[in-house]
């Protein structure tokens, strides 16, 4: 018995050491880590399983939500109830189909206005909340032409970017993940900055020009990265809800509500080919109220020393892993 437990402890120590080694090998490395191949194998194995599970589960969850609405029908006789049940199910599925058609329409609108070439995909699995990482798996992978660091959108706007790509599935880092950062541009002025995810809290916006005019209600689009990876330009991101004065700081910060509702993601699209010209804010939905002709404020300010403002086409606060 003694020897048995000593052996167990030895194995435990070995496994813990192995885990530490793996963590240090993989820790905050972008691109090719030694574990890259292992991850690929795992997503080739688990991806199809998750896809199958998702398509098996979809009718079940639909059915469950159908059943939970039957409470008020209790007094009806069984035959009538069955009929109602059937009709309701029919009704619900037609509504589902209609919703999906609407989503597709919205996607197509974004894609055609912005001239993106997209690959549509469905969300098949969502990272658990205990992981404190906002990631989802989609059912399209390298075989569909998807690669790491591509922009993911839906009909409302920016969803995130691809971070791991397997043959049949890929992992998308959502825009609300705390490690997510994207370069943005204010709707009408040319001001640039970047947004970062804050988990379940609203997104944060930092404008590189601390004197830039910004008001609640201003809308943001992505600015685009070098070579359009990971972000293509012109994707709607969100609306400014509150501006915070940060005296002494060279940047201006604000909170942003994303256009995308991340709790009900289903149909998304991966941008595989960027637009030929930057669509700027043409993709944004029409503004809620008619506005007077916008005055384009050209703020020519010398960037304070130390501020990473570049005059090149695309300064990229590209997130690292």
């Amino acid at each position: 018995m003694r020897r048995e437990s000593r052996r167990t402890r030895l194995i435990l120590a070995l496994l813990v050491l192995t885990a530490f080694t793996l963590i240090s090998l993989d820790y905050q490395q972008t691109g090719r880590t030694p574990l890259h191949g292992l991850r690929n194998v795992a997503s080739a194995v688990f991806g199809p399983i998750e896809r199958a599970a998702a398509s098996a589960v979809r009718p079940v969850t639909g059915f469950l939500s159908g059943v939970s609405h039957l409470g008020e029908q209790n007094r009806r006789i069984a035959a009538l109830q069955a009929e109602i049940d059937k009709l309701r199910l029919d009704n619900r599925t037609s509504e589902l189909a209609r919703n999906r058609a609407n989503e597709l329409d919205a996607l197509l609108r974004v894609a055609s206005v912005g001239q993106y070439t997209i690959i549509p995909a469905r969300v098949v699995s969502i990272g658990p909340a205990q992981d404190f990482a906002w990631v989802v798996t989609i059912d399209a992978g390298s075989r569909d032409g998807i690669a790491v660091d591509m922009t993911v959108i839906n009909g409302d706007g920016l969803v995130g970017r691809t971070v791991q790509v397997g043959p049949w599935t890929s992992t998308v880092l959502l825009a609300i993940d705390p490690s997510f950062k994207a370069g943005i541009r204010l709707e009408k002025t040319m001001d640039i900055g970047y947004v970062s995810g804050e988990g379940s809290a609203p997104m944060q916006l930092a404008l590189l020009n601390g004197l830039a005019p910004i008001n609640p209600g201003d809308r943001l689009v992505t600015q685009g990265s070098v070579g359009d990876r990971p972000f293509v330009p012109g994707v709607p991101v969100g609306t400014v809800v509150a501006v915070r004065a940060t005296p002494g700081s060279p940047t201006k910060t604000a909170t942003v509500t994303p256009f995308v509702d991340f709790t009900r993601l289903d149909l998304v699209a991966v941008v595989v080919q960027p637009p030929r010209t930057d669509p700027r804010d043409a993709v944004l939905p029409p503004p809620p109220k008619p506005k007077p002709t916008p005055t384009v404020t050209v703020t020519v300010t010398a960037p304070p020393p130390g501020t990473p403002v570049q005059t090149g086409p695309t300064p990229t606060p590209t997130p690292t892993h």
């Binding site: 496994l15 993989d26 990272g127």
Partner: peptide
């Protein structure tokens, strides 16, 4: 390793071990 995961490989391995 299984998608979706974006953290360093080995975190869950260590904890669950």
């Amino acid at each position: 390793l299984a998608p979706p995961s974006d953290h360093a490989v080995g975190r869950w391995a260590l904890v669950l071990c």
